[in-house]
Amino acid sequence: MNVSFTVNGRPTAVDVPPKMVLLDILRDVLGLTGAKPGCEIGSCGACTVIVDGEAQNSCTFPASRLEGTAVLTIEGLAAPDGTPNDLQQAFVEHGAVQCGYCIPGIIMAGEALLGHNPTPNRTEIREALAGNLCRCTGYVQIVDAIEATARQRAGVEEAV
């Protein structure tokens, strides 16, 4: 089937089987390998991307639901000049990255959370990450990075 949607703001059209999942479209058709496979059943969150503002497991998101949506992936967060966004930078500064395989998914889950709730507390951050497994970090520094980014964004907005 033909589906048209946007990926990181760019209009995209692909001709794929209706059951093909977004993860495979991103990785195998569009060459965007930031989202990772980790379980293929929506249990680990390594493939998390944002579709129309919501965090989604792209490994279980079929092409048939894709028409007209706006997809945001880890590749779409940086500024046009390649500068990482504040959340990405916070992950680096807080030591939230070890092997890094889960990190694109976790950053996207964090972005989706901040989109809905700009000032989450640590419990809310943990709840938002409950579908994203990380085997290296124990999550604490990840929560630190998201919390710091939220504060920074809120502070900047107040200052404006």
């Binding site: 990785r27 390998t33 940086a78 990482p84 890094g100």
Partner: peptide
Amino acid sequence: AQAVDALDKVMGRARYVGD
């Protein structure tokens, strides 16, 4: 001190073997 490879990983451009 920051991890030398963290930036590539948060940008989604670290290329694992499956990539």
